[in-house]
Simulated scan of single mutants.
Amino acid sequence: MSVPFPSAGYTEDTIKRIRVLFGGEYIVDTRNSKLVWEHAYFPHYYFHKSDVPEKYLQNATKSDKSDTYDLVVANRKADAAVKLFTEGDLKDFVKISFDKADAWLEEDERIYYHPKDPYKRVDVLQSSRHVRVKIDGVEVANTTKPRLLFETGLRVRTYIPISDVHMELLTPAELTTGCPYKGVASYYDVNLPSGKKEGLVWWYRAPNLECAEIRGFLAFYDEKVDVFVDGKKVE
């Protein structure tokens, strides 16, 4: 499935107030940021260099099209956290690595992992489709009560009640991932006669409000398992 508009390289201004917190100070506080799609999946905030005080930028490393700086506030330093573009359409704009700041705020709401794409949405729908999941020929889930998560431009994900999953085959994994739409996911490994399959199952203990109905349900990494919907194998 191709990812719809916007595509990589698209930019647009945003009227939201954006703040970036690091080392106990707001190193950015602006209503003039840009959303920049470096790839088609989600955007990042870029700021004009006038909105990022030079006193926080140290140890420049220069290249042909950009300069890279350490982000420094008092005794806190984040290495190579800031990139200032010196050529091209984004000349004089600054990118701050999302995971190197302490917090990001849109207006007064904290955001996590990356900004949401304003052109994409997530819907969770109850379904009565008959879904079976097999791994290496072993059935690991069988349900007629799935919840289907539709996320613009991405594959539909099927979430299955824990009572319809062979939990005796699963063991908790240490892996976690985060999503600004859904929240923090925990994972299971699957233990089969053919061996352990790592990270094939995930679930959300406390999903974000827009995805609240998947709470406690399990999803399988469809691309790596065999899924049958109403008797037909999903390719």
Rank of each mutant, 00 (worst) to 15 (best):
S97E: 14
R110Q: 15
T86S: 08
I96N: 05
L84C: 03
E109F: 07
D92V: 01
H114C: 04
D102C: 01
D89H: 10
V82I: 11
D123A: 14
A103K: 11
S97D: 15
P118L: 04
D102G: 00
I96L: 06
D102P: 02
K120P: 10
Q126P: 00
V122Q: 07
A81P: 02
R121F: 12
T86P: 08
F85Q: 13
K95A: 06
Y119D: 09
D102Q: 04
V124K: 08
D99L: 07
P115D: 05
L125G: 00
D123Q: 14
K100M: 13
F98Y: 13
L90D: 07
D123M: 12
K91N: 12
F98W: 01
Y112M: 03
L84N: 05
Y112T: 10
K91D: 08
P118S: 05
E109P: 02
K116W: 11
E87Q: 14
D123K: 15
K83N: 08
E107P: 14
L125F: 11
S97A: 14
A103F: 03
W104K: 09
T86M: 02
H114E: 04
D99Q: 14
P118T: 00
E109Q: 13
K116L: 15
Y112L: 05
V94C: 06
H114L: 00
Y119F: 12
P118F: 01
G88E: 06
Y119L: 03
V94W: 01
Q126D: 12
Q126H: 07
L125K: 11
V94D: 05
L84P: 03
L105N: 03
K116D: 10
Y113L: 06
P118I: 01
R121A: 14
L90V: 00
D123L: 14
A101K: 06
Y113R: 14
T86K: 12
L125S: 08
D89V: 07
Y112D: 09
D117H: 09
D108E: 13
V94F: 00
K95S: 11
V82Y: 03
L90P: 02
E107F: 12
H114V: 01
S97F: 00
E107R: 11
G88W: 02
V94S: 01
D102E: 06
L84Q: 11
L105C: 01
V94M: 06
D92I: 01
